[in-house]
Amino acid sequence: MTYRNILIVKLSAIGDVIHALPVATALKKCFPQARITWVVEQPAYDILTNNPYIDEIILFEKTKFKSLAGFYRHAPGFINVLRERRFDLALDLQGLLKSAIISFLSGAPQRLVYCNAREYSDKIGKKVCGPNSDGHIVERYLDVVRELGCKIDEPEFIVNITEKETALSNAIAKQAGLDLAKPFVVLMPGTNWPNKCWPADKFAQLADKLFESDLIPVFAGGKADITAMKEIIRKSAVLPIDLIGKTSLKQLAFIIKNARAVVAGDTGPMHLAAALNTPVIALFGPTDPNRNGPYGTGHLVLTTGRFCQGCWRRRCPDGKDCLADIGVREVFEAVISLVRL
């Protein structure tokens, strides 16, 4: 069967949208005549721009639909935008009620939802559980494409950094005192779960050890990480380079692409680094690296030694600092082992 208009619904989070990037490439290669449209929320929008395998990006502005009045005001226009495209296939890779509703409202007669669908989203689309239903999330998403009879050799992560974004990234780096020609390591102190974060004092100690080894520590992340960064600066012997809250996603991608390695917890920028083939030292506690670890080869995963590792809880019920038992020396040696390969 062939398709003319295919809709991908993957709204958030940044890491999950990055995981789904190979779906667009695989669909376009399998159905080159098809127009690929992606519905996404604002935080991850930037990562999809200028992708040659995505013909259109539709922004879903969630805040407009939170109130009943907002829903009545904005829903008709959004539905019209979807229906005008005349989709014949919709892939719900979010697997939640809101994404299922978008898939349904698109009018696509064929709707597929990936294996881990929740909130009754599998009642709106056909649930696809392929051979990787217990494997990495990238492969789970691609199983939905395989259900269509498409052959996928090697997943492709397309992150297109334009000349303008490159120029802006160079300017930001220069202003921060970072010489991109010198060896540097990107450190990501923030995550969206409190218990995914490695302690600030350990990041400070790691930064000092990197300086001693002629590797420049560069801290990056979103504005939500500014408080953690202040603590890291306060506890560092040498003032590290601070890019926290100073880059867009594409600018961050440029910085990461030029780094020797990235140290991070289970967070979107960590998955961005893996997608860009920059070596990653990933620090895992409450989540499962078999499902959510850095995709591909050349990365290292360090996990907490606790019996409850992989509990999938946003906050520890016992008040434990989940990643605290991952030592600075352990992380430092992992960095050195990847940088010196």
Rank of each mutant, 00 (worst) to 15 (best):
E154D: 15
P155N: 11
I124Y: 00
S133M: 11
L168H: 15
K164D: 15
G125Q: 07
V144A: 12
V138C: 07
K123T: 00
A167Y: 12
G135M: 03
G125M: 10
T166S: 14
Y120G: 00
K123F: 11
D134T: 12
I161C: 01
G149R: 03
L148G: 01
E163V: 14
E147A: 02
V145W: 06
E165A: 02
E163W: 12
P131M: 10
N160T: 14
E163M: 15
C129P: 02
E154K: 13
Y120A: 05
H136I: 06
K164T: 12
V128R: 03
I158D: 02
D122W: 00
V159N: 05
N160M: 09
K126Y: 05
I137K: 09
S133F: 05
R146M: 06
L142K: 08
I158N: 09
L142N: 03
G130W: 12
E165R: 11
V144R: 13
T162Y: 14
E165I: 01
I158G: 10
Y141M: 07
A167W: 13
S133A: 05
T166W: 12
K164Y: 09
E147M: 06
G135Y: 04
V145R: 10
Y141R: 04
C129H: 07
E119C: 06
D143E: 08
E119M: 05
L168V: 13
Y141A: 03
A167T: 13
E147T: 01
K127I: 01
E156V: 14
I152D: 09
N160C: 06
C150G: 05
R140K: 11
K151T: 07
I152C: 01
A167K: 14
G125I: 00
L142M: 09
E165H: 15
C150S: 08
G125C: 14
K126G: 00
A167L: 12
I158R: 15
G130H: 09
L148V: 05
K123A: 00
V145P: 03
G149F: 14
K151R: 09
I152A: 02
R140G: 02
E139Y: 04
V128Q: 03
G149H: 04
R118L: 14
G149Q: 04
N160W: 02
I161L: 08
F157R: 14
V145E: 08
G130F: 14
V138T: 10
K151F: 05
N160I: 06
E156F: 09
I124K: 00
I137Q: 09
G149D: 09
T162W: 11
V145M: 04
V144W: 10
N132C: 07
